[in-house]
Deep mutational scan, measured.
Amino acid sequence: NEEPLPEGWEIRYTREGVRYFVDHNTRTTTFKDPRNGKS
């Protein structure tokens, strides 16, 4: 039961299956979860 991502964020996966987060607001990507700060 995960809380929803902030507005404008999306979860994607690399070809290796590593989860990362896309911030469409700033057009950046990060491996850090914007909901809780954990990677």
Rank of each mutant, 00 (worst) to 15 (best):
5 L>Y: 03
1 N>Q: 13
14 T>C: 08
32 K>V: 14
3 E>P: 11
9 W>I: 03
2 E>V: 10
11 I>Y: 05
7 E>Y: 12
31 F>D: 07
9 W>K: 00
24 H>I: 09
1 N>A: 13
36 N>P: 13
14 T>E: 01
9 W>N: 00
7 E>K: 13
20 Y>C: 07
20 Y>V: 07
26 T>R: 06
36 N>F: 10
17 G>L: 05
17 G>H: 07
31 F>R: 08
13 Y>R: 06
23 D>M: 03
36 N>H: 11
29 T>E: 12
24 H>P: 05
2 E>Q: 11
21 F>Q: 00
34 P>W: 01
37 G>L: 10
1 N>I: 13
11 I>C: 08
9 W>E: 00
37 G>V: 11
2 E>G: 10
6 P>I: 04
38 K>F: 15
2 E>I: 10
20 Y>H: 02
25 N>R: 08
34 P>H: 00
31 F>N: 07
35 R>D: 02
11 I>H: 03
11 I>W: 04
34 P>S: 01
39 S>G: 14
35 R>T: 04
30 T>P: 01
32 K>S: 10
26 T>A: 06
14 T>M: 04
28 T>I: 08
36 N>A: 12
6 P>A: 05
19 R>G: 04
5 L>D: 01
18 V>F: 11
16 E>A: 15
28 T>G: 05
15 R>C: 15
34 P>I: 01
26 T>I: 02
29 T>I: 15
32 K>A: 10
16 E>I: 09
32 K>D: 15
1 N>K: 13
21 F>N: 00
6 P>W: 04
12 R>Y: 07
34 P>Y: 01
17 G>T: 02
23 D>H: 09
33 D>W: 02
11 I>M: 14
30 T>D: 03
26 T>Y: 04
23 D>Q: 05
25 N>P: 03
16 E>S: 15
33 D>L: 01
16 E>T: 15
33 D>A: 01
5 L>W: 04
34 P>R: 00
10 E>I: 07
24 H>D: 04
12 R>F: 09
31 F>K: 07
28 T>P: 00
10 E>A: 08
36 N>R: 08
39 S>E: 14
3 E>Q: 11
8 G>T: 02
38 K>G: 14
3 E>D: 12
31 F>H: 08
21 F>H: 00
